[in-house]
Simulated scan of single mutants.
Amino acid sequence: MQRPGMWFALPAAALLVLFFAYPLAVSLLQSFFRTSGGVSTFVGFDQYARMLRDPLVLKSLGNALLILVVQVPIMMALAVGLAYLLNQAWLRFRAGFRLLTFLPAITTLVAYSVVFRVIMTTDGGLLNQFLALLGAGPIDWLNNEWWARVAVIASITWRWTGYNMVIILAGLQSIPPELYEAARIDGAGRWQIFRHIVVPQLRPVLIFTSVTSTIGALQLFDENFILTGGGPNNATLTPVLYLYKIGFQQFDFGYASAIAWMLVILTGIIAAIQFRIMREKP
């Protein structure tokens, strides 16, 4: 790199080191220390061994994996279906429908979580009022373990489906029209075109959206923090919410750092598995 280019890149590199690399290194170092009475003591891998004995760590991981297994496939299916529908030439007002579908993605996390909390309030909530019109009894959305998970999954799906739909739609529009025409000439139907042309052509886009959605599910914090606070009975507690409570409520930053790095390693492993499963066949 020429010297003038290095000077231009220096501010960005300095910010990267200051706000990303340095905190990352400090958090890794901090995970090997335990602080008590203002004194830090090196404990090696004791913080990581402690996680194996902590039932709340296992509970939070189980909750995150449940959300990952249930919510991500539902959201991806909806995103692919909406993108395929909104890419059809016969559909009128496509631009308007695309805008409406994408609008949730630009809503702030806190704002939409508060709105969902109001909608799902047991007494007088809009959703329970609608169920009452249908003759159904009120559901305790946020205080029942099962329904609290449903509420969190529903809110995440509403927020991120449109975001993934736009990415998949861009992938659909990059598929050469000649492939569709050749398939129709060969007598292929809509399902055959979708299965043998659309899905293989979208493979790189689907890998990207599935991996980013997986990372988002494992790093879930805002929605369950505002909707349920991790309850009831830790049914919606996630690793990020748990490390927040450990670090900023109990001020045990060493253990919180260890949980964070455990989550980084787990995310990397799951992402690598997804890449291997969804990569193109030779």
Rank of each mutant, 00 (worst) to 15 (best):
Y22G: 07
M76V: 10
R94P: 11
G38F: 06
T41G: 14
F33N: 10
P73D: 09
L18I: 07
T101Y: 14
T35Y: 12
Q47Y: 06
P104H: 06
S31L: 03
Q47M: 07
P55A: 12
A14R: 02
W90E: 07
R117N: 07
L65W: 09
V69K: 07
Q71E: 15
P55S: 08
A25Y: 13
P73Q: 01
A77P: 03
G62E: 12
N128P: 09
V70T: 03
P73W: 03
R53S: 15
L99R: 00
R94W: 12
F93L: 13
L100Q: 11
L18H: 06
F97C: 05
L16T: 11
A21F: 14
I67F: 11
L103M: 06
T35L: 00
V69C: 06
S36D: 15
F93W: 11
L127F: 02
V17L: 07
L52A: 12
L24F: 02
A79M: 02
M76S: 08
I119P: 07
I67L: 15
V70C: 02
L86V: 06
G62I: 04
A83S: 01
N63Y: 00
P104K: 07
Q30Y: 13
Q88T: 15
Q47L: 09
G38K: 05
S36I: 14
L82W: 06
R92H: 01
M51V: 01
V114I: 15
L66H: 05
F116S: 11
V114R: 08
N63K: 03
L24P: 06
G124M: 06
G124R: 09
Y112A: 15
P104L: 00
L52D: 12
T41V: 14
G44L: 03
R117E: 12
S113L: 11
P11T: 01
I119A: 09
L85S: 03
R34K: 06
F19Q: 09
L109D: 10
Q30F: 05
T41H: 14
S60T: 08
A64Y: 10
V26T: 13
V57Y: 01
N128W: 09
D123Q: 14
F32H: 07
T107I: 15
V57E: 03
A13Y: 05
G62Y: 04
V17K: 02
F97Q: 04
V72L: 00
V43S: 00
F102K: 04
A79L: 13
A25L: 14
L82S: 05
R92K: 15
A49L: 08
L29K: 14
Y22K: 11
P73Y: 01
V114L: 13
V80H: 09
Y84D: 12
L18T: 10
Y84L: 13
M76E: 14
F93I: 01
V110G: 09
R98I: 08
L10Y: 02
A111R: 03
L15G: 11
L15K: 01
Q47K: 00
S40N: 12
P11R: 02
V26Q: 13
A111V: 08
L127H: 05
G124L: 05
A105D: 13
G62D: 04
T108I: 14
F45T: 15
L61F: 12
R34P: 00
R34G: 08
R98C: 07
D123W: 07
M76K: 10
V115K: 09
A89C: 07
